[in-house]
Computed example of a mutant assay.
Amino acid sequence: MKINKLTLLLAASLLAIGAHAQETYAEKLGWPKGAKVVIFHVDDPGMSYSSNQGTIKSVEQGVATSCSIMFPCAWSASFVNYIKKSNPNLDAGVHLTLTSEWRDYRWTPLAGFQNVPSLVDNEGNLWHEVAQVVKNGTADDVEKEIRAQVERALRMGLKPTHLDSHMGTLFAHQPFLERYIKVGAEYQIPVMFPGGNNKLLKECLNLPVVKKLKAEGKWQEGMKLPDPELTKSSTAVGQKIWQLGLPVLDDLHTVSGDWKPSTPNPSPEEWGKYKAQQFIETLNAMQPGLAMFIVHSSDITDAFKHISASGGSRYADMLSMMSPELKAYIQSKGIILTTWREVMERRKKVK
């Protein structure tokens, strides 16, 4: 069979398109093909003194490379002061907060509860649950509030390295997501969004389904579950964010808070070692690309028990970030740790 030049050129073009389609965002940002590039990210500094101390230990003594601050909360100013006085190069973003989830410890919107009435309950506090924000909140009020939180960071002298979403509220409703991207593009601040392979994210989002099937005795290893709703449009959303000049993640891991040893009443050290091992196994399983791993590190004080019963898990998150075994594994496997600041600097260099 004779193959003409046009056929060869067409085949080469199709191969090139296929290779480009498989290119990770890490590769687009200049990291080598096949590299695993990771941001270990601490959520919730600013929420409490314990959260601040846990974040500080995780980044100063551990493998954590980034964090994001809850600006409506009482301890946010203290954490910004720590950055300005002691760690000016800390990778710190705005943990855009539209919920106030605890029973007794509550906070109000920075825009003022009179100015964003759809975002608050009858006490004037932000809603407890994501579903309540989706049901009652308007996109205009959401945009007004997230702008207020970014502006507070800037007024305090902090240039945020990125934006992300507390409890994922901004990813739960398309109009909210659009305003999130709009604000990030306007300020040219990266918006955390996973638009790549999302292998780990799909596993995280499917975890409740797996737990339910196991409880009902219907789970079988290797069972294929449908893609979660968020990941169905994530490729297109990621491409849109990239075209706006902002970086995009290949993957996101969110469920370290659910990790706990099966042994009853584990010690903090046992719990921390267990989580570190889980991170090692997850890093081993992740596909090449740029991934963010979320933790909620807290160095627990007696006062924290009046906020939440999650103290044991949060303390174990902090210990896992400080784990020598996890640090040694990262080094031995050549896993690259990065920050949102570096990611944005790389994005600026890409045409």
Rank of each mutant, 00 (worst) to 15 (best):
K232R: 15
L98V: 04
L244A: 12
S51P: 04
Y25N: 15
D299W: 13
I69G: 09
G124T: 11
Q331V: 13
H41E: 05
F40S: 12
W107E: 10
G137N: 08
V295T: 15
F171G: 08
Q278E: 11
T99F: 02
E325L: 04
S320W: 00
G137F: 06
S256C: 04
I189C: 05
E27V: 13
W340H: 10
S118I: 06
S100Q: 05
T55C: 12
R106C: 05
N197W: 01
D43T: 13
L29W: 06
G312M: 09
Q53L: 14
N4K: 08
A148C: 06
F176K: 03
K275L: 02
K333Q: 15
S48K: 07
A316I: 00
K199C: 04
G217C: 06
T339F: 01
A139D: 04
W242P: 10
T263A: 11
I241H: 06
C67L: 12
C73I: 00
L98S: 08
E203M: 11
T301Y: 08
S332C: 08
T301G: 12
E186G: 02
L14Q: 09
Q278A: 13
M70C: 11
H20L: 15
I181G: 01
I280A: 07
E270A: 09
E270I: 09
A139P: 07
V150K: 12
S68T: 07
G289A: 06
A291Y: 01
V120C: 13
G312C: 05
P264A: 08
K327I: 08
L290R: 00
K275V: 00
L9Y: 11
A236K: 10
V255P: 00
D91L: 04
S58N: 01
G34W: 10
Q239E: 14
D44N: 12
N198D: 04
I56P: 01
V80D: 02
A303D: 13
F79C: 11
S100F: 00
K351M: 05
S78W: 06
M167D: 05
P228Y: 05
N87W: 00
D164W: 01
L98R: 12
K159Y: 05
K327Y: 02
W259N: 00
Q22R: 14
T161N: 10
N115D: 11
S313F: 01
H166I: 11
Y187Q: 08
C73W: 03
H253P: 02
K211W: 09
M321P: 04
S313Y: 03
S48T: 14
G168S: 09
H173P: 02
T263S: 15
Q188F: 09
K348E: 11
L244V: 04
D104S: 14
D302M: 14
V37L: 07
L154D: 05
H128I: 13
H306N: 15
